[in-house]
Design a protein around this nucleic acid. Sequence first.
DNA 1: CTTGGGACCTGTGAGC
DNA 2: TGCTCACAGGTCCCAA
Length: 286
Amino acid sequence: MPELPEVETVRAGLAPVLVEQRIQKAEIRRPDLRWPFPENMAVRLTGARVERLARRSKFLLAALDTGETLISHLGMSGRWLVMGAAPLAAFRHDTDRIEKHDHVILELEKGAQLVFNDVRRFGAMDLWPSDDLEAHRWLEALGPEPLGNGFSADTLLAGCSGRRTPIKAVLLDQHTVAGLGNIYVCEALWAAGISPLACAGRLDADGAARLVAAIREVLRAAIAAGGSSLRDFRGADGELGYFQHDFAVYGRAGEACRRPGCGGEIVRDVQSGRSSFHCPACQSGP
DNA sequence: CTTGGGACCTGTGAGC
DNA sequence: TGCTCACAGGTCCCAA
């Protein structure tokens, strides 16, 4: 489900109900997700007040007044949902299977509940000292934020230099730039006119500049649309994102390329076990 | 060091 | 109806 735009959508929806609220009770309903939860997580959360809710790449960072930060990752199917608000009650009604995968429930002041639901359990949570966050193993090796000043044609070119792997693999790997996933890599490469199969080491300065601009624009537009709802992504408020209607290539194998005057047909390839979509007519490379 | 493949886990839809 | 297979937005780990 969640790449950077979806995580940002969740952050924006969660912040108004979570920030400046105290966690009155933490119910931890299993010992782990992808990894074990931190020791005594319920105790360390209970009574803590959330001071800020930030995002780094695909991680949500809730800074607590205890000096620790609750780090969470949605994996493939994780969601943070706000319960107790009227609109949400309607959304939850017909789907009792959802409750089956509610793994962490945080009760806030004023009765609202935050529920972490994750069918596949590829998600993760940890608690870590806020003043040493960058040393956390999930965060220490992350590349720059794609929408931040640390990401540029120069840094992208440096990350691609000498690499024999396809450009798609470099963008999915979180070291050169952090936060992209399968959907937005495919979309950005299409927007830049570069094939996902193209050799990373052959990216030139012009291509790098186009790719950086394309990544930023695709992410910006997706965030503005509330992310993409394939299957079941929802924002924290239960709202659907709608960027999936704007996909140029993702999931469109056999359909016409949307670039004006192109006339090509989108094809699906499998690269290192994952679907890639591109238009052979207007995306350069092998 | 780089790279590709499998592993983790559950659910859904297509085809027989 | 029920079986099997392929596939799904992410990341880690290991062998070559």
